[in-house]
């Protein structure tokens, strides 16, 4: 958990169970097939989940009057592109997307690296005070974002970092969740014997980390990277304090668009669509992995 993102976005729950019964349970449970009602209910939920996103595209191409018509419109039309163009003029969404890619990319790389290093140490190395430090990490997950922002704001104001991307990147690198996630994964996935084998083979501690730990940790690192990127892309609270619409991330630009004096809902919706689409495309492509990662994290936690 970064200090600057809300807690529920990443935390993993506590139930744990060995992987063997889990696999067995999964296979066996499948025997009970879903009836038509189940499919209908799930279909409805899926529709409700996706509809607001689709509606963004519809609303982005209609005037208010058209939207209020009976029956309401359910297909976007060509005005969509006109409105996207207008949104891009009203708010620097292109710049925002570039900024968000940079910010979320840096945060992801840094977080995964720090988390893997620390998670490995907490999972497999014994050093004085390790339990207390891990407790500190876990405790951090409960701390609300609000608790850090005033001093951080003062800090970046003094460093004259307001409106600079590093003001968003650096504080968000601290991910207690990432450390905890990697620790949970490595405690299970990395047998002590493997580390001992590396020691017997004469590998130094650093060599062991790069040649043995990182390859084993790679699947969890990928999951953590996806979740971190998503969270960083969607992060809202700290960016709207640290940045202005002069040099925004996507969320800051959207907040500006929504909170500004743009009279036309369609333009706001068009901006929302453009700002959301990149991450949604990534999500659809990697959806299966992200789902797997969240569920894996749930059981591991």
């Amino acid at each position: 958990m970064t200090t600057l993102t809300s807690a529920p976005e990443q935390a993993v729950p506590a139930p744990a169970s060995a992987s063997a019964p889990r696999r067995r349970g999964r296979r066996a449970r499948k025997v009970t097939s879903a009836g038509p009602l189940t499919h209908v209910l799930l279909g409805l939920t899926a529709l409700l989940s996706v509809f607001p996103l689709y509606w963004t595209a519809v609303a982005a191409s209609k005037t208010n009057a058209e939207l209020a018509g009976t029956p309401p419109p359910f297909l976007p039309d060509a005005d969509l592109f006109t409105n996207i163009g207008r949104a891009m003029e009203e708010a620097p969404i292109g710049l925002a997307i570039v900024n968000s890619v940079i910010v979320a990319g840096c945060i992801t790389v840094g977080t995964v690296l720090c988390s893997t290093l620390a998670g490995f140490a907490f999972a497999k190395l014994r050093f004085r005070g390790n339990k207390a430090l891990l407790g500190l990490v876990v405790g951090t997950m409960m701390v609300p974002t609000q608790l850090a922002i005033i001093p951080l704001f003062i800090l970046i104001a003094q460093l004259q970092w307001v409106d600079h991307l590093q003001a968003v990147v650096l504080p968000t690198l601290v991910s207690a969740f990432g450390v905890f996630f990697m620790r949970q994964f490595l405690s299970q996935a990395l047998p002590d014997e493997l580390l001992e084998a590396a020691r017997m083979d004469g590998a130094s501690t650093l060599r062991t980390f790069w040649s043995v730990v990182v390859p084993v940790a790679r699947p969890a690192m990928a999951v953590l990277a996806m979740l971190t990127f998503l969270t960083a892309w969607n992060d809202f609270f700290w960016p709207i304090i640290a940045l202005t619409t002069e040099n925004p991330t996507v969320q800051v630009a959207l907040a500006g668009l929504g909170g500004g004096y743009v009279p036309d809902t369609a333009v706001i919706m068009a901006g929302t669509l453009v700002g959301t689409l990149p991450v949604l495309v990534v999500f659809v492509v990697l959806g299966k992995q992200i789902v797997g990662g969240i569920m894996q994290g749930a059981v591991k936690g």
């Binding site: 989940s49 996706v50 607001p52 809202f236 969320q251 929504g258 700002g275 959301t276 949604l280 959806g287």
Partner: peptide
Amino acid sequence: LMPYATSIA
């Protein structure tokens, strides 16, 4: 999970 991927804003 799509809503989860959508930002608050």
